[in-house]
Amino acid sequence: MKKIILYLATILLIFSCRKEDSETFDGPNLNDLFGEFSIIQDITVNSNTVNFPVDNNVYFSGELSKNTSWIIDLKGQTSGANRKLTGTDRIISIDNATWDGGANTFPGFGLETVFVEISFPSEDNSVILYDTIQVTGSKIDDGILITSFENGVGTKWSNFNQTTVAGGITCGDGNAAKGNCYYGFNGTVGWDWAIGSVMIQDDNNDFGLPANASNLYFNMAFKPIENIGAQNTFIQFWFDEDENGDGVFDPATEDRFIYEYWYQDTGWSLISYKYADIQFDVDGNQVATNGNGLPEPGKLFSINVFYLANKANGNAKAYIDHLIFTTNKPYTP
């Protein structure tokens, strides 16, 4: 009998070494599903004043009683720019609630007061928290800026406006997508879709773009205001490349890629596409050019932004702003 008990005890000892899974469990957390919601540690921003070029970012921290969805809604007082930080983690920290100064889309934040609203949409009757952040320095864009129209018209730029159209740079009216200035077109052209254009060329004939077109994105802010709606308004981009490097673009022998973008809403939108894609039309077919047919950003000579609208619809009005190239991903305002 003693032997049997000994055998049994040995076997039980061997098998009873199952690791106690006290830290893990199966399925979703019941606390998250059914637990009571409360804010255990106040949600605060690490600084109410931020200079993004110096500070890089600001972040929020706090602790909730459960994992639940939360929204930190940031709104620029002057620009109307908006950025939403969202998450579901119980712990709010630098890992999941950091703001780098950017917006979800255009317009971007300027030097202004930003209103902060923190809410918990899945929790009935939960509190809404408010705060403010003062932006004293805007974030530095990660990309190659062509122009944000902040410095006026370049020495080599040219523009075209129909006789009934007023086209040019406007500053300080609070309508810019980024910064203080933008380029606008406004007028009635009853005889033609063409409203106006601005051809942007670098002072030194070199935008400083990399050679690889496959990971380079062209970005621009666009805002149609009048003569809008489906199939009424579009932008044409002409990318002229100086393929032989003689400092002159020859449309008869060199590439001019024309890319169209149609838009029907009235807010600022981000136009963003890969430079390599300008060689194809909307159906994916290769477009005809007079050069070698290869998009070569390093040889980009000028960008012509051409605004067109339905001539039958009366007055046409639109703004453009912030032309910038980015690598690997589209621009984030």
Binding site: R18, D21, T24, F25, D26
Partner: peptide, 8 residues
């Protein structure tokens, strides 16, 4: 249970 379900 060897392991909790939804909770420890």
């Amino acid at each position: 249970q060897s392991r909790g379900t939804g909770t420890n």
